[in-house]
Amino acid sequence: MSSEIPARRHGRHAAVAAPAPSTPQARSSFRHNIAVGVTALALVAGLFIAPAERAEALPSNATAHLADQEFAVGGAVRAEPVSRDSVSATDGVQTLSSNGTNADWAKLVLMYGGWPQSEQNVTVILRWMRQENGTNNWWNRNNPLNNGYGSGGGAGLGSYPDLATAADYAAANLVRGYPAIVAGLASSASADATARAIWASPWSTSHYANGSHWSSAPVDIVKAPASAW
Rank of each mutant, 00 (worst) to 15 (best):
Met1Phe: 03
Ser2Asn: 11
Pro6Asn: 14
Pro6Val: 15
Ala7Gly: 10
Arg8Asn: 11
Val16Arg: 13
Ala20Cys: 12
Ser22Met: 06
Thr23Cys: 09
Ala26Leu: 09
Arg27Ala: 15
Ser28Ala: 15
Ser29Thr: 04
Arg31Lys: 13
Ala35Lys: 13
Ala40Leu: 14
Leu41Glu: 06
Leu41Met: 07
Gly46Pro: 04
Leu47Tyr: 12
Ala52Lys: 11
Arg54Val: 12
Ala55Phe: 06
Glu56Cys: 05
Ser60Phe: 10
Ala62Phe: 08
Thr63Leu: 13
Leu66Cys: 05
Asp68Trp: 00
Gln69Phe: 02
Gln69Cys: 06
Gly74Arg: 11
Arg78Val: 10
Arg78Ala: 14
Pro81Phe: 01
Val82His: 01
Arg84Phe: 11
Asp85Ile: 05
Ala89Trp: 04
Asp91Tyr: 10
Asp91Trp: 06
Val93Arg: 08
Leu96Glu: 07
Ser97Lys: 09
Ser97Phe: 05
Ser98Gly: 08
Ala103Val: 08
Ala103Asp: 12
Ala106Gly: 12
Val109Cys: 04
Leu110His: 05
Leu110Glu: 10
Tyr112Cys: 02
Pro116Cys: 07
Pro116Leu: 06
Glu119Cys: 00
Ile125Trp: 09
Thr135Ala: 06
Leu145Asn: 10
Gly148Thr: 15
Ser151Ala: 07
Gly152Met: 10
Gly152Asp: 11
Ala155Ser: 12
Leu157Met: 11
Gly158Cys: 09
Ala164Cys: 00
Ala166Glu: 04
Ala167Arg: 03
Ala167His: 02
Arg176Trp: 01
Tyr178His: 15
Ala186Ser: 12
Ser190Phe: 03
Ala191Val: 01
Asp192His: 05
Ala193Leu: 03
Ala195Phe: 03
Ala195Lys: 04
Ala197His: 07
Ser201Thr: 11
Ser201Tyr: 03
Trp203Ser: 08
Trp203Phe: 14
Thr205Tyr: 06
Tyr208Gly: 03
Ser215Pro: 03
Pro218Gln: 06
Lys223Ser: 13
